[in-house]
Design a protein around this nucleic acid. Structure first.
Lengths: 367, 367
DNA sequence: TGCGGTCATGAAAACGCTTGCTGCATTCCT
DNA sequence: AGGAATGCAGCAAGCGTTTTCATGACCGCA
């Protein structure tokens, strides 16, 4: 139906502001003002316009509107890896705030090194957003500079960055909380599973969390034994490997603090496969309160994830609306220790069980 | 610097196509054609234009381009809940394909009932996308109709929907695989943890997976005992509750199949707290191969998650480029049983351990 | 040499809004 | 009552592209 151009002017695509103007008997300028709630329109005119628009099922053309107004009504959200738990949580929260504000959300998932390079190289955001929200991406200063040159307000979640308003947590203090908890339980040998700098997407965080670990040990008057600090790749597998390393020590720790819940869970798997029990043989504490933590009863440090996204989005929207504030704001949200059943006082150890079958060969041996 | 309007015409905002045209000594029409790789431009002219554009650091104005071309270069992606694992995985995959294709990704996270209603009510996608990708959203026919009226191609991941090209898995067959696995291990009493229809975002799936469960039982010549089929809310807590119900039966199952890994993990928690061991006392099999499955050594049915997103995106891009195909395509991707250590042959049961402390009160008692 | 054809280019008309400016009526003061 | 505000609308100039159509230049061929 209506496939022939001969069928007349009936189906002529979506109606434009001109149609509304004609129908309401006013100029298009007045329609524009009415629709956007600007002043200087009499109530009666406005209602007439609104009705006409509704009757025609009119929707403004974003393209035309943007071209004319030089505003995009869009926020670019840059995530290092949309598939990971943390980022998807933040993204969800950001999406909610932006929707509320009537802003479009243009998503950029860097995902891999090439994506990242291409992003900062070509700056695909240019001319298409009013603001940029960066989620937990450790930016090199060059990258930060490029971002600034975009010429629109920006904000960042999770990592302190020069020039950028930032919403984050205190990783040092959070880690210290976790370690203090273990100390208070009576542990003396506390290991740490940490993810070096291998993950460029969280830079800063690993270091901070390690710092918190050392700080808490120091405060407790415990010696910092470097052999108890083990690096692994990011994620469960890294945690599993690092844990295996620790187990291979002559005098393994009675408790470990993992940089992230993911690593903690990996560590728990190693322990399980080694025939060791959590927390009876080894206490484990994680960080983040990833959804998985509750499922495996992991003691952890909760950080407000969605809230960070919300705050950042609000911050950014404000900057977009009112211009960036002179001094970039910084919001630090609180963390909280969540005690579950993966941590308990150390057992008086009578005999350390020998390596059980299934225990991964410690990497140390491979070198 | 350059803050005064008196400082001359130097910093005059981003350069426009006119600037490029002037610099290259051609008309803007030629610039447009050159930049977009259209034919009918001599190689020498094209390079000249390209160089001028590069020198001026020129980027086309999407707004102007869209207005003139009546194309948006944008795909709207609708997810019911960006924060959940499955959706974030698909989203990541879709993002990658769209980026590759140079399409913008406009994200709509429905997240809650109000978001959903508002979405289908106001259709915020109107006039701003060239295509819509719906991720695992069970659409009412009214909603599907609304979508069609958007007038742009659409595709959907995960749930068969009239009129929409669809990429999905065979849930019935997948579930049957899981149950057959348990049957082959020798289990006779196999429970199922299922999430009724409480989650409007996955409609279809729960039913299909239950169907597969029954089908496999029937094929194996096992009686279908309705008391072994228990409903719970979506997610780990639902699984935990449903599992508690099953444990309260006079003759509990020796194995359970959970509709999703999330429910399976919840069930495992219930078992653990009840002092029962997986798989020694009860075998558990999940569905999805959620990242958590590997971490808790859960046997499950893997579905290709990212691949579904990729295929759907490609499908959609094709429809956008070449017009929708007459008969909406349907791609069904294969599932695969992943055997881990949560399933094992049933033990010759000498004595069923009584309810241990920590076992949640079965809901049946509460009613 | 002349003629239909192909090719590269330019002129100009959209595309559908926003917004500064202008022009009237009204209303408000003194 | 006269002039100054004030409120409401319309005019028209953009906003920066894409795309149709027209115009020559050039080519091969008879």
């Amino acid at each position: 139906m209506n496939s022939s151009p001969l069928s007349g002017p009936v189906m002529s695509g979506p109606s434009s502001i001109t149609d509304v103007a004609r129908r309401a008997g006013v100029s298009i300028a007045t329609v524009s003002r009415s629709l956007r709630g600007l002043p200087n329109v009499s109530p009666v005119t406005r209602t007439r316009v609104l009705r006409a628009a509704a009757e025609l099922d009119y929707v403004v053309s974003p393209a035309a509107s943007r071209l004319a107004s030089r505003r995009t009504g869009t926020i670019g959200v840059v995530v290092p890896f949309a598939r990971r738990w943390f980022f998807s949580q933040v993204l969800g929260a950001v999406a909610a705030v932006l929707r509320e504000a009537g802003m479009d959300l243009l998503l950029y998932d860097l995902a891999d090194r090439v994506g990242r390079e291409e992003f900062f190289d070509r700056l695909p955001l240019r001319r298409r957003v009013d603001g940029v929200l960066v989620i937990s991406l450790g930016l090199t200063s060059a990258e930060a500079k490029v971002l600034r040159e975009l010429g629109v307000p920006a904000a960042i979640v999770g990592v302190r960055t020069p020039w950028l308003p930032c919403v984050r947590i205190d990783d040092v203090e959070g880690s210290a909380k976790a370690v203090r908890h273990l100390v208070n339980l009576g542990h003396q040998r506390i290991g740490m599973l940490s993810s070096g700098l291998e993950d460029p997407t969280r830079s800063g965080t690993p270091t901070d969390r390690r710092t918190g670990y050392r700080k808490a040990l120091r405060e407790a008057g415990l010696a910092h034994d470097p052999t108890l600090e083990h690096l692994g790749a990011w994620g469960p597998d890294g945690g599993a490997e690092a844990m295996a390393d620790l187990l291979a020590l002559p005098d393994p720790p009675t408790a470990v603090f993992a940089e992230s819940d993911e690593m903690a869970v990996g560590a728990m798997r190693t322990l399980r496969r080694a025939g060791l029990r959590v927390p009876d043989d080894v206490s484990v504490v994680g960080f983040d309160d990833h959804e998985i933590a509750g499922l495996v009863d992991l003691t952890t440090v909760r950080q407000p994830v969605a809230e960070q996204g919300e705050h950042a989005a609000i911050l950014l929207l404000d900057a977009v609306a009112n211009g960036p504030s002179e001094v970039p704001s910084e919001i630090v949200l609180p963390t909280r220790l969540i005690v579950r059943s993966s941590s308990t006082p150390p057992r008086i150890r009578t005999r350390w069980p020998g390596p059980a079958e299934g225990l991964p060969t410690p990497r140390a041996h491979e070198r």
